[in-house]
Amino acid sequence: MTYHRKSYAVWEITLKCNLACSHCGSRAGHERTKELSTEEAFDLVKQMAEVGIKEVTLIGGEAFLRPDWLEIAKAINEAGMLCGMTTGGYGISLETAQKMKSAGIRSVSVSIDGLEATHDRLRGKKGSWKYAFKTMSHLREVGIYFGCNTQLNRLSAPEFPCIYECIRDAGAGAWQIQMTVPMGNAADNADILLQPHELLDVYPMLARVARRAYQEGVQLQAGNNIGYYGPYERLLRGRGKEDEFSFWQGCGAGLSTLGIEADGAIKGCPSLPTTAYTGGNIRDHALHEIIKSAEELRFNLGAGTPEGTKHLWGFCKTCEYAELCRGGCSWTAHVFFDKRGNNPYCHHRALTHAEQGMRERVVPKVKAQGLPFDNGEFELIVEPTDVVLPANDPLHFTADSIQWSESWQQEPEVSYSLARS
């Protein structure tokens, strides 16, 4: 049996940022008070290689605002690990792109969170959309492979078909989509979050866009909080191949993934809240000790035993996929309810409720404190679908909200499911 899985780390090398995104989970802007020194960063690179990390993605904040970022990229490359980067793209000149190529950065993901007005609004900077596309042209010119990543929320979802056309035309090879969830700044802007019952209109649209993307050579990559087990699961998670086993197989935090914060905090996944999921700091313990011993990085071990599902509650506890799914994305569940194990952002779940004449929605209950990677708490409401939704909700998402440009008129809706064919 060939072994294909890779282990990778997502490393926030600085929290300093030149954008001010209203959905930013880390509330990036100013650098952290005690970010790792260059020497400490080089030592961490060495330790990552020793524990079996194969690939490192540099993020921020904005990674290129750290003066030694290209030295770190070069060190990662020289240690035998692949180095990639995720960026807001606000300020990568052609000269910088050439330096990135020389430092060994193999791939870049540029954040595009809507069409121009929406992107600039969400990212808090007029002109950031135009510069992101300029960055992509620079990457293309120097020959660095690039893709895009997009937050899926009530502002961006209506524009998804048009966003796709823009990034395809820019030459993006891949497109990762991720649901906006209430961590950090997004916790203070709950009105932009999709509601669980709105997934019923989101997923048919995503499937239609995904199918066209695959046909036109753009690999759509469903993030870990996209899913689960609905009629389009294999299409969305199969990266164009629709293999019979292309479906969600549980949270991978601490199994193949590490998240590293700029001050040396180690988590099992870069998205997880700092307070509840930090296993230790690289300044206090060796990386291999943290991975081996910290309970915060071991919570996904024990699948297939009672230990593997004991954290589940609510709908997820009784779901027929529970043993494999284990509550979907831990980050998503935690930032809504301050504990993992029950995730209403699930297509299968929304469909199940709809068949019973019910729907779910979330309402803010406890505010977040205002720290990086923090979360508040939401109340989960399950109600009959004939109950009138709250008034004064101008961002409410429906299928009618979606903007299909003329080119989509030739594209049939995706009404099939591989599972049923």
Partner: peptide, 12 residues
């Protein structure tokens, strides 16, 4: 020795 480590109806 450390990473990566190891830790389904879809008739629907």
């Amino acid at each position: 020795p450390l990473l990566p480590r190891s830790a389904a109806v879809l008739e629907s």
